[in-house]
Design a protein around this nucleic acid. Structure first.
Lengths: 275, 275
DNA sequence: TAGTGGTCTAGACCACATG
DNA sequence: ATGTGGTCTAGACCACTAC
C-alpha cells in the first residue's frame, strides 16, 4: 500500500461496515480516525457479533493484517490497546484470546473485596431471590429502559468460605447483592439456571446469553444497615456498611446490569489502586 | 547498532548506573530485560534524581534515542509506558513533560470523591493541626520506619465550596483527613508553610521537598463516626462514614505518606472505574 | 519554518508454546 | 519444526505547536 496514500482508510467491504455516515453515533467520523483505530473498531465489531467468542483464539496478527490490508505493526497497536482495556488477552507463543469472565481462575474480575488477613477471600454464593418485575424508575433510568419495562431482580448472599483451620458449617456473610438485569436481554434466566450454575455470575451471562461485561463504574458510600439487610449479614441493625452501586456495560457503552452490594467491612475492605 | 547484537544492553556509563548486581533489588536482572525496559529504568532514574523536575520538558525522543544509543521506536515504547503510568505527560507538537501534582487544573489527581449533583466538587482546606511526634507502631509499619522515628501528623478538613447560587459563609464539611509523613523527609514542614501554601498538598511536597507521589493504594471501609469526628463533620455521632486509608509511594516503591480520610457520603460518593 | 510527538510501514530476530 | 506474540530497527509522512 505504498502507492496512493492521501486519506488512508480501511476498505469498507470485507466485514460489512456501512459506508453511510448516518449509521450509529459510535462510527461517526471513524473514517478520518487513525488506521489503527479503524482496525480496533473492526476487531471490536467482530467481538460484538460473536465472530470470536469469549475464551476463543482470534486470528494472528499477520492474518488480521493481511485480511485488513494493513501492516502487522498497525494491527499490533490496535490489539495492544484492546489488551490494555482487557477485551483481549495476549499469550506469547500461543496467540491472542477473547477475554472472558467464565474461566479465569483469578476469581471475579470486578470484585475489589479483600480480607484483612489472607488476601483475596474465597466466597460462596447463596441465591435468595430471583424474580421478574416492572423496572422501578431509578433502575429503568440507569439501564436506559422505558419505565415499566421488565427487569430481572436477583438477590444473593456471599459468604466467606472458612479456612482450612476451622470448618464450622457455613461461612460468614460478607456481601449482600441486589442485581437488576434488562428482562429482554436475558429471556430464559431463572432460579433453576442460577442454582445449577457453577462459576462466576458474569460467566453465565456470557455463555448462556452472549452478553459480555466489558467495564463498569461504581459509586461507593457508607450507609447504616436497615433491619432486613442487617439480619441477612448477621449484623446488628444500623451497623455501617459499604454501599457499592455498580453499573456494568457491554459493547457500545450499553449498560446491561445494575447492582447494589452491601459489604460488611468488619474484617474486609475495598481495595483500590491509584496512579 | 546493527553490527554486534547478542546480549543487547545499554552501555552502563552515561548516567552512572552501577554495574554490580549487588546494588538495589530494583535493578536486579535488569541487564537481561528488554531494551525498552532498560530505557524506562534510565528515564525513571533521571526523574528520581530530579535531572528533570515535575512540570519540565524532557528531551525529545530523537535526543534520548541518540543519547542512549537505541532507536526512536524503542524510546517511544518506554515513554509510552511511562505516560500510561502517569509519570510522564505527552503533548503533541510540544514535547514530553514530567507529570506534576502542582499545576494540573484537573484538581487532585488521587481524589475520587464526587458530588451527587455537579460532578467534581470544589473543595477548600482548613488546617486543624500539624505537629511532630514519635511514630505510633502502625504508622511506622506502614511507612517502613523504625518504631519511634519522628513523623509529622497533619489534620485537615475539606469543605465543599458553596455554588454560585448560595453563599452562606463556609462550605459543608465533607472530608476529615489525618496525614502522617516521615519527619526525616520533610524537615522544614510546619503549620506556617501549610497555611501559606495554595494549591494541591502534593504539589507542596513536590516543589518544596522534591518528593513526588507516583501511585497509591487505598483501603476503603464503612465505619461509625466517633464523637470527635462527627463534631468536626457536623454530623451526629455514629453516622456511617467512608474510611479511606491511603498509602502513597514515590519512586522505587518507597512509601512516603500514610493518610486516613473520613468521607461524609450523604451527598457525595467515591467513584471507581472497573475494566 | 522547524521541531515535536503521532502514525504507518517493512523487515529482522528473539522467546515461547506446541506438535 | 512451525507459528505465535515480543522486541528492535530504520525510515517515511502527518498533525500540531511555536516562533
Amino acid at each position: 500500500m505504498p502507492a496512493t496514500r492521501p486519506p488512508k482508510s480501511l476498505p469498507v467491504s470485507a466485514a460489512g461496515l456501512p459506508e453511510s455516515m448516518a449509521g450509529e453515533a459510535a462510527e461517526r467520523g471513524l473514517a478520518f480516525a487513525p488506521l489503527y483505530r479503524q482496525v480496533k473498531a473492526r476487531i471490536v465489531a467482530s467481538l460484538q457479533s460473536c465472530e470470536w467468542r469469549p475464551g476463543e483464539l482470534i486470528p494472528s496478527e499477520m492474518e488480521l493484517a493481511a485480511r485488513l490490508g494493513v501492516s502487522q505493526g498497525t494491527v499490533r497497536k490496535a490489539v495492544d490497546e484492546l489488551a490494555a482495556e482487557n477485551l483481549l488477552v495476549r499469550r506469547q507463543g500461543r496467540g491472542t484470546f477473547v477475554a472472558t469472565h467464565a474461566e479465569q481462575r483469578q476469581q471475579y474480575r470486578f470484585l475489589r473485596l479483600m480480607a484483612d488477613e489472607g488476601g483475596v477471600p474465597l466466597l460462596e454464593r447463596e441465591l435468595l431471590e430471583c424474580r421478574r418485575l416492572r423496572a422501578p424508575g431509578w433502575v429503568a433510568k440507569a439501564l436506559q429502559l422505558r419505565s415499566g419495562d421488565g427487569v430481572i431482580e436477583i438477590r444473593r448472599l456471599l459468604r466467606e468460605v472458612p479456612g482450612a483451620e476451622q470448618e464450622r458449617g457455613a461461612g460468614t456473610p460478607v456481601v449482600l447483592d441486589d442485581i437488576w438485569l434488562p428482562g429482554a436481554l436475558f429471556k430464559g434466566l431463572n432460579t433453576e439456571m442460577l442454582m445449577a450454575h457453577k462459576g462466576p455470575f458474569y460467566g453465565l451471562l456470557e455463555t448462556r446469553f452472549g452478553v459480555q461485561m466489558i467495564r463498569a463504574q461504581e459509586r461507593i458510600r457508607a450507609v447504616a444497615a436497615d433491619e432486613e439487610t442487617a439480619a441477612l449479614l448477621l449484623q446488628p441493625q444500623g451497623v455501617p456498611l459499604l454501599s457499592v452501586e455498580r453499573l456494568s456495560y457491554t459493547y457500545a457503552d450499553k449498560p446491561v446490569e445494575l447492582r447494589r452490594g452491601f459489604y460488611s467491612t468488619a474484617r474486609h475492605f475495598y481495595r483500590n489502586e491509584l496512579n
